[in-house]
Design a protein around this nucleic acid. Structure first.
Lengths: 335, 335
DNA sequence: CTGTTAGCGCGTTCAG
DNA sequence: CTGAACGCGCTAACAG
């Protein structure tokens, strides 16, 4: 490929000025249909592609957004991403999907890189950053939305799951089934949603007059194998536990495997409740009782919020604060 | 936020010229350590971020690459993406992860959008495009690599799985176990890897002296539910089938569910073999016999190839053609 | 309806 | 070791 076709090439070929070509490209008014068609033909023939780079330099907008998630391989986040991307594409935006791999310093690095790319806005999902760093990371972005993370700050949209309520529902379900010694595999300690779920868990126990025990809520990375390990440790240390509430479905699947390995039958010897309701939840044996979370909607709502903050012609979405409700799905792992 | 901090602001503040600042940013030689440190300090204090947009306009490089996959929610592709992104990040690149949702027109649209973003190169994974469209789509990109897709064209890197061999291994395993009527849920008809896997399947049957039957290889979208439907249809139409070879593990899980619904026990009444060996394969009951594919490596090798074609200082990787080997993992669904 | 002028923020010359 | 001028490809604002 010799040299890229530029607007000037098209203009010369058509015998018009740059502006005329520019107007055709951007579908602006004030061009006769005849010239418009003629120029479009030349554009197609030459294979001209407008440069978003050059355009971005002058308009100060890139048509690009950032979406930062802890782990793209987790079906929870890939579905959130689907929701967000769908809305973004429909509005003509592209999105950088960035993985932090549950790592704070990578999260900071990613945010900086997105700044340098001059994205028009960012969605930060389940950020693990401390408040100070988070504010700094957001400050230089033209618009931003948080998912699964609270922050007291004007100018940032927030989309949350009612996780305390979810944690409470899950735990109450286990209590109603007669369980009195309920452990929780609590997920990452710096996860906001994890903290909320624990609150719900504790509140439910307290309401039932069951004394809480710190030992019963060990943290763990939110994946299958760490969940399995944590479950083995907890169930070995505390054989009196008859039920486990898990930070998410991946951890719950790990717990399932742990029970199998320990010779504990699910749900008879140990009931298990997950969180998220990812597709995997109904594919394992027994199927997981879990808190359903509207994952796609989490992403799409966040993106709508972001776009409304980005495109000033659109009516700003009234509330910058959306709370979505979880729903308990009762299946065989904790009937 | 009032106005972005620019290089000029830094230069003015430091009492030096733009060039001096530029040299510091890009770690170029010919700056005294003293000034370098002094300017770095000012950069940090002002929160200056170099604009990749402006830089891209002059250098003609964006530090951005495209990665196009059919379905980001499929664990196979998310792992390929992990491999590719890991290599890209290590080399200082960002990547646009783009979903086509198994749709050809979206695939074309995505490729065009990537052109306009002026990415430095593209990896196209499991492209469904016809040869003509594919060549056109690649032509305007400075560098490109194909995964799971053959194409006779100089200047494009290719990373493949030996899928014909994989299909053969899977089928031979079933034949060795005594099966004589083996169906195949063949996946998308326009998938190159699907076509290769069918070839392997047919070759194995032919070698064993088993007559092939077109009816036994219905295509289906590569997901759980379509796989389930296809399996129900096939097993209902041909109850004499005692084994199914599936395009991928998602389809195989669908087949598993179909068998459960039809009251067929796996593997006794119907053996099932999948493909890919995604994490889910060992989580379902019974665990799937499947062809393991080095998914992460598929992505990382492809990205290495792409970078070697993008960065002219690096030694070009000799062969632009990499073939990775699958490996049969024998588990309970087809012992 | 179409063209002209100016500059977006930076890196690449080439001179000091 | 440092700086001044120029242009990357495009659009905004204003003329005609």
């Amino acid at each position: 490929m010799s040299r890229r076709v530029t607007m000037a090439d098209v203009a010369r070929e058509a015998g018009v000025s740059l502006m005329t070509v520019s107007r055709v490209i951007n579908n602006k008014e004030g061009i006769s249909d005849a010239t418009r068609r003629r120029i479009q033909l030349i554009i197609d023939r030459l294979g001209y592609r407008p440069s978003d780079i050059a355009r971005g330099l002058v308009t100060n907008r890139t048509g690009t957004l950032g979406l930062v998630v802890p782990d793209n391989a987790n079906p929870f986040f890939s579905e959130v991403a689907r929701g967000a991307e769908h809305v973004a594409y429909a509005a003509g935006y592209n999105v950088f999907l960035c993985n932090t791999e549950e790592d704070k310093s990578r999260e900071m690095a990613v945010m900086r890189s997105l700044e340098e790319k001059r994205v028009d806005g960012v969605i930060l999902c389940s950020s693990r950053l401390e408040e100070h760093d988070l504010k700094r990371a957001l400050a230089f972005h033209p618009a931003s939305v948080l998912i699964n993370r609270q922050l007291h700050e004007e100018d940032v949209g927030i989309v949350l799951i009612a996780d305390e309520r979810g944690g409470r529902m899950a735990t109450e379900h286990l209590i109603r089934s007669g369980h009195r010694c309920i452990g929780m595999l609590a997920g990452p300690e710096d996860s906001y949603s994890g903290q909320q779920r624990i609150r719900g868990y504790r509140a439910a126990l307290a309401d039932a007059g069951i004394t809480c025990d710190q030992v019963l809520t060990p943290p763990c990375p939110p994946k299958v194998n760490p969940g399995k390990e944590a479950a083995i440790n907890l169930l070995t240390a505390r054989p009196d536990i008859t039920a486990l509430f898990c930070y998410n479905d991946l951890v719950a699947v790990g717990a399932l495997q742990a029970c199998m390995e320990l010779g504990r039958r699910v749900p008879d010897d140990c009931a298990i409740v997950g969180y998220d309701d990812i597709p995997l939840a109904v594919l394992v044996t027994p199927p997981l009782t879990t808190c359903h979370v509207p994952r796609y909607e989490l992403g799409s709502r966040a993106m709508e919020l972001l776009l409304s903050r980005t495109e000033h012609n659109k009516p700003q979405i009234k509330s910058g604060h959306v709370v979505l409700q979880p729903e308990l799905m009762i299946r065989a792992s904790a009937p």
